[in-house]
Design a protein around this nucleic acid. Structure first.
Lengths: 130, 130
DNA sequence: CGGCATCCCTTTTGATACTG
DNA sequence: CAGTATCAAAAGGGATGCCG
């Protein structure tokens, strides 16, 4: 029987299986394309949706929305809705998100320090392949 | 409409800058699903392909191969071919890979420490959604 | 303004089969 | 043992439209 395409846009379940390696599961979430960027943008202050979007580079509304929801779900950011005019939604890091920020920054620092060396390696590697 | 990009943030090492494509490029590479796992498996010793595969959990041959080649290309691991019988290829961390290991371990430690808390958050979040 | 839904294309990944 | 090749499925991601 034909299965209708039932909502592949997951925000939710199916990730917390029992036999699964928790650590890797967590790492995957963190390792995605935008989470780290967004977390860094929330480093020192609360931000609104579009503000966050402008700061985070070329991220689509859809992806930012999905990223934020995942971060919220994992207890890394809080989402606060203000019933003002115009409406505003603020995002901020939780203590857990803040603790992740430290680790992420260490990684970022390493990346910066090694970026040029890595690019050199890539160039050399590609040259050898030829 | 005014953009109003307040951009004095950056509380330290600049990872999250928009012009920083190199850093993000490196982060993406490192943040991928398997690189961290493989690097950890090479932490203390040289290992062969299938040995690595067994140790790294449910990784397909294809993915391990691709991951290793990326790591080699970026100068993080060395690949040594032994013309023996049966043939054997050893992978080991380079100094650069070793320097990354420290950072990666911090990330892995964070993931371990926060895994259960994150799962709790997810459960709570899913419950609220209902 | 914030943001979910839909359509649709691109990239990634896993199974399987095959080579040196 | 250590891969590469191929194919199909899945996930990622952009564009657009609608709604509160």
């Amino acid at each position: 029987m034909t299965e209708l395409i039932t909502e592949p846009l997951d925000t939710g379940p199916a990730l917390c299986e029992e036999g699964r390696d928790l650590t890797r599961d967590v790492l995957e979430r963190i390792g995605d394309k935008w989470s780290v960027v967004v977390i860094c943008k929330l480093a020192d202050t609360t931000r609104g949706f579009n503000e966050l979007r402008r700061l985070s580079g070329p991220i689509s509304q859809r992806m930012l929305s999905a990223t934020l929801r995942r971060l919220e779900r994992d207890g890394l950011v809080t989402r606060t809705v203000h019933n003002t005019k115009p409406p505003r939604v603020d995002y901020a890091l939780t203590p857990r998100g803040l603790s992740l920020l430290g680790v992420v920054r260490a990684l970022a620092r390493w990346a910066e320090e090694n970026a040029s060396g890595i690019l050199d390696s890539r160039t050399a590697f590609n040259a050898e392949q030829a």
